[in-house]
Design a binder for these strands. Structure first.
Ligand SMILES: [Mn+2]
Ligand SMILES: [Mn+2]
Ligand SMILES: [Zn+2]
Ligand SMILES: [Zn+2]
Lengths: 144, 144
DNA sequence: TTAGTTTCTGAATGTCAATTTCAATTTTCC
DNA sequence: GGAAAATTGAAATTGACATTCAGAAACTAA
């Protein structure tokens, strides 16, 4: 979190960006929760205490965070791009519940390793990947 | 292919759909190629020989094929949904080249197995999944 | 501080694929 | 053949994302 703010400040400096109260506000709100926010989500959350904030400002800030490497863009196929804080060296993938929308994280080094082997077999160089399991979370199985 | 037409016909019958030349045409064009078509792609291809076909008709047909289980919807994050014929029991995932857009298929049972284990550990029931590797294909590495 | 320059903000507008509308057409079934 | 139901395709709409632009705010160097 401190790290992420430092990384962002350095990135902003390099880009010649100015410090604004809005961006600081959005950054803190974004980092203060491990959630997987859409622009809409974060905009609505911020608007409760800061009714003047604009949707476009939130959107631009999230894209900027991704550019600066402190956020990752996620797409779970529901038509809304989501963002999550990137914890350096802490890659993970997701379990997405199709019933309640809850998101759980997982990390499986053996899958990552096999993935590399598959790519190597095809002479393919992986830049990034996406691995999502869709289905019912334990709560929703119980309710079924 | 014969199987897929039979599956579709049964699905259409159950839904009380009528037979139309357009849908037959779209179905044949769709099944006759292993490509990963967007609506736009298939529409443009069909229009060469059938200038009167409508974009909406192609789009509705592709969605219908997916509903009937003979097509899968794919999203490689380029803003266009793609469709590919579903070969029963022949699941595969994809390598997507970020340079030339080429799509290669892969299948790795050990990954599928580990995936199931991960889900089981979380009490999660997988309905479907998505596993895509983005990066440079062998051709594009050569050109790099 | 102050004037000058650059960036930022947010309401409005534009973009683009996906989806819907609707009047005319086609299919299906008596 | 004729009525009822589904289909078609051009056009309009939707919804998320992206951009525009005029006024506001932040920096910079006297
Ligand atoms: Mn996550
Ligand atoms: Mn494929
Ligand atoms: Zn759930
Ligand atoms: Zn390539």
């Amino acid at each position: 979190m401190k790290d992420q703010i430092a990384v962002f400040n350095e990135c902003a400096r390099r880009k010649g960006l100015k410090n604004t109260s809005q961006r600081t506000l959005i950054l803190k709100a974004f980092l203060s929760s491990p959630s997987h926010y859409s622009t809409e989500d974060l905009y609505l959350k911020l608007r409760k205490n800061h009714p003047k904030i604009g949707y476009a400002t939130v959107h631009r800030a999230l894209k900027l965070f991704a550019e600066c490497g402190i956020a990752v863009e996620l797409d779970f196929g529901d038509g809304q791009t989501r963002f999550e804080p990137l914890t350096i060296g802490q890659h993970h993938d997701h379990l997405v519940c199709t019933e309640c929308g809850s998101i759980t994280e997982f990390s499986e080094p053996r899958i990552e390793e096999l993935q590399e082997q598959v790519a190597a077999q095809h002479g393919f160089k992986i830049e990034r990947h996406r691995h999502e399991l869709y289905g019912l979370c334990s709560k929703c199985i119980g309710r079924g």
